[in-house]
Design a protein around this nucleic acid. Structure first.
Lengths: 348, 348
DNA sequence: TTTAGCACTCGAGAAGATAGAGTGCTAAAC
DNA sequence: GTTTAGCACTCTATCTTCTCGAGTGCTAAA
């Protein structure tokens, strides 16, 4: 059974009011704050039906109604109007991201920070998944005998480095040589295709490398781990403490449950990934309350979207707030930040 | 007026009990739980005097006593016995730090994580202050035209890198050349002595660098900023969310005040620095309640200690917990972790 | 289908009552 | 001088009771 027009308006009004005040909405308050051309009794009937259909809930008999997860879902799917960001706010965000960023990591940090400040909720930014990007450079710098810094440069401008240990008697030249050989052999190869075998093939196909096999393998193994760990996702999360000022988290237990889960970066990153796959092709992904499969987030909503690096590689940014969040505002903020990131990462 | 022996025992017993239960301690409870050879009335007299001297406080007339900041101070300064870490616990920490760490950053992250797990409080680790360390290597790697990765290697094995922009028409060789010139000119120089001028002198004294002055200066400026930012302190903090389960932070307002302050890494790092200077030469530094000049931490205690890198450079690790923390245990845990770090950083 | 009217429900908050842990003081005992 | 028993007093935490009022659902009329 579909919702008639007035019921839609009623639901919308209830969500709006509840978002604003965090207090159950009664029929009278509704009449007072909105221009319904009917009486409160009529609204009461509508509200009773909306409740029966599962869009509303009553905390207890003699309180007003609050939206259920299904109610919020209906709201974000078809009721709310996503308004454009005010010029002012756009300007503020732009300013925060106006510094020039030469590494994706710092751009994402700044974006997450701006998003947290702007929304007042928890923001997060996940570094791009690099499996589809390819190796462009690999340098091995001897820091001291036995210690080598492997610098891995990927397409899309991502740079990672890792310190590894090698036998101390190898010289700077030998090590650099190996690095060059691997770089030449692998450059242009997608990260997902790089394995210990391809690394070895690359190095051993090169005439200049002259080392006993066992020794060479040891160094190559370290180079390989350095390349592989470049694919690790980093998560930047900010604004957690702001949730404590919301009435829904005035109960410390709840806040603790939330923070416990959020302290596991990997969990969150994995969830974002999952959601992104489910809602492929959508401009943004929303999960509300119980829809979120992470523990402790059932009083929250989760909005994410995908940014692009040079058209191919993609990462995510998002916001975690209370179910009772200002969806349309947050969506326009997230979208704006995404656009800014896309733009900054377009031209290399 | 000094405390007589029994008063010391009473204060110690009260702190111990309050730490264990977070409930005001009364004279009867004290008799029950400890073997005082006097009556509760005698203890009452002692407690009244301890209160007058400022070591104890009453939440209200008909409750027991709780230690004041001064009481805790007396306790940590002369009453508690710092017991050695149990073998078990030592083993647990050792295990957590047993992986081989090739960068200080990862060792500190692991140490902070171990400390948070082990104490159940907030742990932090600050990277070493590098002003007294010196430059050993500086490499400039061209990532793509116009973009150069500057890798700065300092004594004590600290490696930092930063992406900078330069004019696009410079070649890999030119850039590497400049990097080499700077490295040769500056290697061995303490970070604190490196300035834009010394960088320029180093580069221009080298015959091989042949570039118009204006252009060269531009590149050198970028190299300089990269070197300078290597001195930034990083702060690793973990276990914040655990504070929410403590009764003293069941009031969300308090928790929020704490988290607000802790979200400013710089503030905390600065404070640690200050405390370290004040208590130079001490094995560990303790600040209790109001002694802490950071906002929102007046219900907390702060314990820090200093680790050493190769004898010269030093950074800090620490724990933030409630005033009512198990001081002796935490101190032995912190000390143990510091020893582990010292050991790992001794041999290069 | 809408509306006015009304009895009913239920939680929030005020007010009062009670229990009990703990205190401080006094006067006697050591 | 120090310690102790005894006792009246204080204050909070908790429980119960009560009332208020916002909000509801139902009925019957418009």
């Amino acid at each position: 059974m579909a919702l008639d027009n007035r019921k839609k308006e009623v639901l919308q009004a209830i969500v709006d009011d509840y978002v604003a005040n965090c207090e159950p909405v009664g029929s009278k308050a509704l009449i007072d704050r909105h221009d319904f051309m009917v009486s409160s009794a009529t609204l009461r009937n509508d509200m009773a039906e909306l409740e029966q259909m599962g869009y509303l809930e009553k905390p207890h008999t003699s309180a007003g109604r609050i939206p259920s997860d299904k109610g919020y879902r209906e709201y974000v799917d078809s009721l709310m109007k996503v308004d454009k960001l005010s010029d002012e706010e756009g300007k503020e965000i732009k300013e925060k991201l106006s510094v020039s960023f030469d590494e994706i990591a710092s751009l994402l940090k700044a974006a997450s920070s701006a998003l947290a400040d702007q929304t007042g909720y928890i923001s997060l930014a996940v570094t791009p998944k690099l499996t589809s990007s390819y190796l462009t450079q690999l340098k091995m710098l001897m820091i001291e005998p036995g210690k080598v810094l492997v610098v891995v440069v990927l397409s899309a401008g991502v740079v990672k480095n890792r310190m590894v240990r090698i036998p101390d008697f190898l010289t700077q030249e030998q090590v650099a040589q190996i690095g060059n050989a691997v770089e030449q052999g692998l450059s242009g190869m997608p990260l997902s295709e790089i394995s210990l075998i391809t690394v070895a093939t690359a190095a051993k196909g090169n005439q200049k490398v002259e080392l006993p096999d066992a020794l060479l393998n040891q160094v190559l193994y370290e180079a390989y781990t350095a390349i592989k760990q470049a694919d690790n996702l980093d998560v930047y999360m900010q604004g957690k403490h702001r949730m404590l000022s919301l009435p829904e988290f005035s109960d410390t237990k709840r806040a603790q449950g939330l923070f416990d889960t959020l302290s596991h970066d990997g969990l969150v990153a994995g969830y974002v990934d999952e959601v992104t796959k489910q809602d492929e092709k959508k401009e943004y992904m929303i999960r509300i309350g119980q829809e979120i499969t992470l523990e402790g987030l059932d009083e929250c909503s989760f909005i994410t979207t995908t940014y692009n690096v040079g058209g191919k590689v993609a990462g995510n940014i998002g916001v975690i707030g209370p179910k009772r969040m200002e969806y349309s505002k947050v969506i326009s903020q997230i979208n704006f930040v995404r656009m800014m990131i896309d733009e900054k990462l377009k031209q290399p």
